[in-house]
Nucleic acid binder design. Structure first.
Length: 300
DNA sequence: CAAAATTCCTGACTGC
DNA sequence: TGCAGTCAGGAATTTT
């Protein structure tokens, strides 16, 4: 459930708490969270003793640059949480799978009930090594060779990030015409656009006045431009509100505080409630095995 | 090749 | 009270 606004909220917290600190030890109690490494030992060996230089975000991924050129990459999956603790004595939350023990004696705990999330250390890209970048990511990277995609090979496949890669409407319109899928499938395909998930795809489509099942290559130029403009508008409002915490209370920031954007959702999780624009009841349909909420009157 | 379906996972909730 | 069934969905993998 963490999507771009939630991940950005966590990034800002990590930038405050982690930058300049050394990871003394990183014990792993559930290897599923470090599954990209052959064993938890390998993960620990690559991370322990390293100092964090910066914390970046691309799509729903976090990448902490380390002092030897590696990156600690984190994805929260559905239920992943990063929680700060003053010291090791503070009781660990349920489902804590990895603990970053810092030189300050503080800890960052990674808890993840459903284990869809992960952490891994990405080794530096060698000199002259070419990282294969997808067609859509190439549109995003432009002439920027310092882009995170070229420094972290595991993130090279990610499509346009609405904030990290700001493409003009003409390029965006071309992207909407490059595939023939329902609009919501386009918005949530991380290899085309990165950062949108089920919640914000619904919210963006409502704000743009477009139905989830419109074929993406049949939008008029005016409609595609409206969509292009709406994406960063909705996401930046959600970031301002600290992200969305639904009733499962799975998303919290580093301090354990929930977001506030759930109070501003226009349609998502609001089945049967009146549309904020026209008072028509919001509908819920199952689309591609996921819930989709929309206004049948305002969205076409 | 693109698009759609399946799989992973656990806790909350529903109905009997 | 217990218990089987259902639901939630990000992304890798498999199938069409």
């Amino acid at each position: 459930m963490p999507e771009l606004p939630e991940v950005e909220t966590v990034r800002a917290g990590l930038a405050r708490e982690l930058v300049g600190k050394k990871v003394k030890a990183a014990p792993v109690s559930d290897g599923r969270s470090t599954r990209r490494h052959p064993s938890a030992k390998d993960f620990r060996a690559l991370l322990e003793g390293r100092t964090v230089k910066s914390v970046e975000r691309l799509g729903k991924y976090l990448a902490c640059a380390l002092d030897n050129g590696s990156h600690l990459v984190i994805h929260l999956g559905m239920t992943g949480q990063l929680l700060k603790a003053k010291n090791a004595k503070v009781p660990k939350p349920k489902h804590t799978h990895v603990v970053l023990q810092l030189s300050s004696n503080e800890e960052i705990r990674f808890a993840d009930q459903r284990t869809f999330g992960e952490m891994f250390v990405s080794l530096p890209v060698g000199e002259g090594e070419e990282v294969p970048i997808s067609r859509f990511a190439r549109l995003a990277i432009g002439g920027n060779g310092l882009n995170l995609r070229s420094r972290v090979r595991e993130l090279a496949h990610l499509g346009l990030d609405p904030f990290e890669d700001q493409v003009g409407w003409d390029r965006f319109v071309a992207i909407t015409r490059s595939r023939h899928v329902p609009l919501k499938a386009l918005l949530t395909d991380q290899e085309i656009l990165s950062g949108l998930g089920n919640i914000y795809a619904d919210e963006v489509l409502f704000s743009a006045g477009l139905r989830y099942d419109r074929p993406c290559d049949e939008l008029t130029t005016v409609e595609a431009r409206r969509l292009h403009r709406t994406i960063p508008e909705v996401l930046s409002e959600a970031i301002k509100a600290g992200g969305t915490t639904l009733s499962d209370e799975m998303f919290v920031d580093l301090e354990g505080a929930p977001g506030r954007y759930q109070n501003q959702l226009q349609v998502h999780t609001r089945e049967g409630e009146p549309c904020p624009q026209c008072r028509t009841p919001i509908e819920r349909v199952v689309f591609r095995d996921r819930s989709t909420y929309f206004c049948p009157r305002c969205q076409s």
